[in-house]
Design a binder for these strands. Sequence first.
DNA 1: ATGAGTTTTCATTTTTTCTTGAACTTTCTG
DNA 2: CAGAAAGTTCAAGAAAAAATGAAAACTCAT
Lengths: 173, 173
Amino acid sequence: MMPSSTLSVSQPKVEQSALSDLEVEAIEMFINFLRLIGLPKSVGEIYGLLFVATQPLPMDEIIERLGISLGAASQGLKLLRSFGAVRVTYSPGDRRDHYVADLELSRFATAFIKEELQPRIDRAVERIERMEHSLADLPAKERRITEERIARLKHWLDKGQKILPWIVRFMKL
Amino acid sequence: MMPSSTLSVSQPKVEQSALSDLEVEAIEMFINFLRLIGLPKSVGEIYGLLFVATQPLPMDEIIERLGISLGAASQGLKLLRSFGAVRVTYSPGDRRDHYVADLELSRFATAFIKEELQPRIDRAVERIERMEHSLADLPAKERRITEERIARLKHWLDKGQKILPWIVRFMKL
DNA sequence: ATGAGTTTTCATTTTTTCTTGAACTTTCTG
DNA sequence: CAGAAAGTTCAAGAAAAAATGAAAACTCAT
């Protein structure tokens, strides 16, 4: 039995040096987890590759090894850089930027909280205020019921707000 | 100034009794939060409507008020039922099922953890095992580096596994 | 059993999201 | 300073996800 890592069987569009089994596992793993927080496949691929790379990789090598486009690579790296999941290293005698994964995975969690979760919570708080204004329009019976529901929402948002910093702290340990 | 809640200005395809401001706020809020855990807009709409409804609603009323399709309503309700976010109530003298929102929002969190997060963690654990096997193929220097990375992944998965039950418990308070 | 009312299913269409690649900008080198 | 290399941007195409609606399946009252 031939090791699955050595060469791809069907001719790939662009020649791409095959990924090792280990790299494939890492990449698939990050595709899965990062998709969970709404990041596209290509971003997962890039981070996965960099996470197990033993040395900084220039963009064209990332493109070639993953078989993704220039645009996807550029945008993906930009995004990963934007929340510190990837850093640029200088490589003497080479004009290309070289990329290294920051191994601190908590960055993804904090970026997700800051960019996705917190804004929604903020908007929800405003919504609840508006909902409370609308209460006045309701007949007494419905108002009572609805007040209780709104109270429940507030309770939940409160709880969310309280637990978030705690989670962030736990992550960074 | 006319209250925006009374009637929609442009003729909707199907007649739909307008949603109140309060309902719109609730619906948009749930669309936003449920999207975060990968649920489609229609599911957020349905749950939002039911969350502020002061009485059980039959499916055709949900369809009519939200202006969504039969299929979306049926599937959305099925999904919401499947993790206990919505329950069916019996309404005497009416053949239609009537739906009520379960107000315990933690159900969404636990469903998300059980159906999305935990399976990925489990697959990741398997992947890591395979990655450890692959380590043998690497030259000593790279092996050392990679071992450290894998250790880090394990550490993270461990941490995730440990915090999850805690979060679930906190949610249910 | 029949049929009207209700609900589910699923192939198709629509919408949204992601990727591509070519044009453009920037940056370095000789 | 010209030209080539590297990187960015974005309109258009491809892929993935969600919504639609018609047909099938169920369910009850007669």
